[in-house]
């Protein structure tokens, strides 16, 4: 099953002239996102009593952007990624990502390709699937009758309370991003992608990740997320190219990590250097392949699609 899907993915990209690449799993710098905890391992050079910290990659994004900056053109890879402190029905600390970058694609063009890929994979398994797109704001207004950009914490709190989540204010405090994540995760996401592949677009600027700010409206970023069967499958961005802005976002992340007493990882200076040289205009997408398999065969736990999940690794 997995082998068949992998083969179909490789054919799909070969037909479109996208090059398959491999990048290191071990790296000197890593993601700064406060929501992600990396695995850290100790590297000893031959004969050396001293060690240096290396990180297991949480996604191949930074290395692939370095290739793009070096002139690789459009690229893809299927690779293992590692995230510490994540385990559950939809999480395994080691998992497989399909990640690709399209030079000169805007986000809409990339999303067309995402749809084509997933509908093709569903069809190859004898499953008819359709696709729809809706903005983050429209979803909030439709499901929760509040506005992710304008509504106050008090409105979020009243909504959460009415929907049976009175502890929300204790969980989120005045952190607007946490409020949006919590409300989205509890009351919107579980129904998303039940009937059709659902692509959520136009994320609020406070949830930027590595997306570019929307050129005609700074309240949004060019970020999309993909949902199928109530599961988040992946993130797509029109990629941020400005090394100064990228450094600021890394530093802001590290500040937040410090505030919450989290590990402070080294930021990826090599990525920042590469952005300094110049990342071509591009859009990129990362999809959790294990979850995609789950959604396509309708299973309820990652354990059904991963041979040896962490408890049996």
């Amino acid at each position: 099953m997995r082998a068949r899907v992998n083969r179909a993915i490789r054919e799909f990209f070969e037909d479109r002239g996208v090059l398959e690449v491999e990048t290191p799993l071990l790296s000197r710098g890593t993601v700064t996102d406060p929501g992600i905890t990396p695995f850290i391992t100790a590297y000893h050079r031959p004969g050396s009593p001293h060690s240096e910290d290396l990180y297991l990659q949480t996604s191949p994004e930074f290395a692939m952007k370095r290739l793009l900056a070096a002139g690789s053109g459009s690229i893809y890879q299927m690779s293992k990624a590692f995230r510490n402190e994540e385990q559950g029905r939809y999480h395994n600390p080691e998992f497989t990502l399909l990640e690709w970058y399209r030079v000169d694609f805007d986000l809409d063009q990339l999303l067309d390709e995402v749809e084509a890929l997933i509908l093709m994979l569903a069809a190859s398994l004898g499953k008819g699937l359709t696709s729809r797109r809706i903005s983050y704001q429209a979803l909030f207004l439709e499901r929760l009758e509040c506005d992710p950009l304008i509504s106050s914490h008090h409105e979020f709190q009243a909504k959460a309370k009415a929907l049976g989540l009175p502890e929300a204010s204790h969980l989120c405090g005045e952190d607007r991003a946490s409020w949006l994540d919590l409300l989205f995760g509890h009351f919107i996401q579980p129904d998303l992608g039940r009937e059709a592949l659902t692509i959520v677009t136009d994320y609020p600027a406070i949830l930027p990740s590595l997306a570019r700010a929307c050129p005609h409206d700074p309240h949004y970023v060019e970020r999309s997320e993909l949902f199928l069967g109530g599961m988040e499958l992946g993130n797509g961005f029109h990629e941020l190219r400005d090394p100064k802005e990228q450094r600021q976002r890394f530093e802001r992340d590290l500040e937040r990590r410090k505030l919450h007493g989290q590990v402070i990882p080294s930021m990826d200076e090599r990525l920042l250097d590469a952005l300094g040289v110049g990342l071509p205009a591009c859009s990129g997408m990362a999809i959790g392949l294990d979850r995609l398999l789950m959604a396509l065969i309708g299973s309820s736990s990652l354990e059904e699609v991963i041979g040896f999940p962490i408890e049996r690794a």
């Binding site: 402190e85 559950g88 988040e232």
Partner: peptide, 14 residues
């Protein structure tokens, strides 16, 4: 017990 976590964000247990 269910572990809930948006792709990039705070983790919760429901």
């Amino acid at each position: 017990n269910e572990f809930v976590k948006p792709g990039k964000g705070q983790a919760f247990n429901r």
